[in-house]
Nucleic acid binder design. Structure first.
Lengths: 342, 342
DNA sequence: GTTAGCACTCTTGAACAAAGAGTGCTAATG
DNA sequence: CATTAGCACTCTTTGTTCAAGAGTGCTAAC
């Protein structure tokens, strides 16, 4: 098995960069002209054969040029990625959009998703901050009618949940008010993730004077927080249809179907939740339907800890340098934006 | 110009029904066998030629069968639609899903959209109840910190809006409480649409003791209600890729792009807001990008008045009888569901 | 008015050839 | 001994031709 020496790397890089541009298998001749490699097409041919033997390139058919394999992209991404600078114009444009959305913090993720779908020809995926990582600010129970109460949870990222609840039994407004204050004071400043069942139980015990209703509220509102986490924005799925690899609707459909299912995308984003930038090429992620696609996702932070993720889904043939730079920049911007204003 | 006599109508109907099934131009021979029309292929040919002259059928090319034109579908829909009964199984399934979603009323539209996208191979579009038609229940300002207040509007369809607002100046909690009560009492039971600027002005004048803040709140919250109306759910857009007319991604893309833009879909749904079932075939609606698509939308009602709309977007070649039945049934079910529980 | 018959048109698919792109191998080269 | 020119070979792509098939419109007979 041949070694990946410097010239092979140069050729692999050139093949990938050319293929990303043209979406056509690249041959030795083309490469010899396009890239200044200083060797003849014949040499390139030999090297390409070696790269194919190593599993980094592939031939669609005998007399075609080479295209990168998933492993080829992986080597490229791992060891020769030239992360590009985002043009200043795009940076400013992103910043402005973010600043505008910040007036209602809940809207930031959607705005980011739209920005990503505008700046790339791919689908964008953005998760809201995970509730466990949000910092609890207030819980308010507002009496509406005798047996109806409005429950609102406010965190450092804005209103997390606002729901009306039907209670089995009437509850007096003062009790609700006291309950609101109690819970709010007890948990203010804590990440929601820290509000465990045992802690909740303590409070429930303390306010035993209205045991049943408190229990109900605790159950319906706080215990369900993890489930409420599944808030996700997906934009630009139609972009994918513009990619030559998905010109046929039959190949595009499973991809768009997968992107329509929020659980699926949520899973993808969760897998990325810790890493600064996660690049999953082709079959490196768990979603069967997105086999031919790459995912580039970065976590953004709230209060110094990973809170949510954002990124794009597109064909494996993509300019990783540019995409990574963009995704990283957006993650940083969101982290910053959500940290600054509160 | 020939008249549309009984036999022509039979043939038009047969052509449409066959074409809906097969997605292939239908010829006289096929029709003579498939439909029991009691006349020969030659006669059918003559009639088809007449129907073409009348602009109800068209030929993709000289030696192909006929396909319906938009106007052909229109005649069919207007005068020979056989609205089908929804199978009992589907009816129950829909009811169950709706009942489950009703625990949180805000979720009903999304649930309906998913149901529609499951029951049809088309994209579904559902709007939330238009705020103007919702009945005002409560407005609550909850003080969070000195210059931060949580504003919640509750209507008969649940929480309409919950936002945190930054105020320029501190505001005492009692004032907020009184303000909440005042506005709530004043407008309780009124549709939001009746809460005009002049009425608002009155209240603002009454509570002049906190003039500036009230004004701010009125502006930021109540005046913006129409804009907040744009809440829409779209599901199953990938379904469209399964339709033979959109097998090519280049024809499908503009359609999916349009369906991604909430303003566009909102416009469509608004156009339907009054009619019990609105059928727009091909070019009968305003959305350029959806030229080859039909829209079947029905308004649902809250409190006896049209409040929102739901329906599907698919190729003009669709089984209108079945689709109309389904959409109508769902609209009725939603109206009922939103009326019953409150 | 209806229909059988038929010539005509146009698409579709297959078969085939020529062109083009690209490879792998071999032998010559510095 | 790595490099490269040359070349035969392979496979796709494209265009052409041809026959088959589907469907029509017209005409003439019923």
């Amino acid at each position: 098995m041949p070694r990946l020496d410097a010239r092979k790397r140069d050729i692999l890089r050139a093949v990938i960069q050319t293929y990303v541009d043209t979406a056509e298998p690249v041959g030795s001749e083309v490469l010899a002209h396009r890239a200044r490699l200083g060797v003849s097409a014949a040499t390139i041919r030999n090297e390409m054969a070696a790269l194919e033997e190593m599993g980094l390139l592939a031939q669609p058919h005998t007399s075609a040029g080479r295209i990168p394999t998933d492993r080829g992209y992986r080597v490229y991404v791992d060891s020769m990625l030239e992360e590009e600078q985002l043009p200043a114009g795009q940076r400013h444009w992103v910043r402005r959009r973010l600043a505008a959305a910040l007036a209602e913090r809940e809207r930031v993720p959607q705005e980011v998703a739209r920005a990503l779908a505008t700046l790339t020809p791919y689908a964008s995926v953005v998760s809201h901050p995970h509730p466990r990582r949000l910092v609890f600010r207030h819980l308010h129970f507002v009496p509406l009618e005798a047996t109806r109460v409005l429950a609102v949870i406010v965190t450092d990222a804005g209103v997390l949940q606002a729901r009306t609840l039907d209670l089995q039994e009437p509850m007096d407004p003062d009790g609700l008010e006291r309950l609101s204050r109690m819970v709010s004071q007890r948990f203010q400043g804590h990440p929601l993730g820290e509000i465990t069942d045992t802690l909740l139980q303590q409070v429930v015990d303390e306010v035993a004077w209205q045991h049943r209703v408190v229990k109900l509220l605790a159950d319906r509102i706080l215990r369900r927080l993890p489930a409420a986490s599944r808030r996700i924005h997906i934009e630009g799925t139609a972009n994918i249809l513009a990619q030559p690899e998905f010109r046929d609707a039959r190949t595009a459909r499973p991809v768009l179907r997968a992107l329509e299912q929020e659980e699926v995308v949520a899973g993808l984003l969760e897998d990325a939740s810790d890493r600064p930038v996660w690049i999953a090429i082709g079959s490196e992620h768990r979603v069967e339907a997105l086999r031919g696609c790459s995912v580039v996702v970065a976590a953004y932070r709230v209060g110094g800890r990973p809170a949510g993720a954002l990124g794009i889904v597109g064909p494996t043939r993509m300019p990783y340098g540019r995409v990574v730079a963009l995704v990283r920049y957006l993650a940083d911007s969101v982290s910053q934006a959500l940290a600054e204003a509160r």
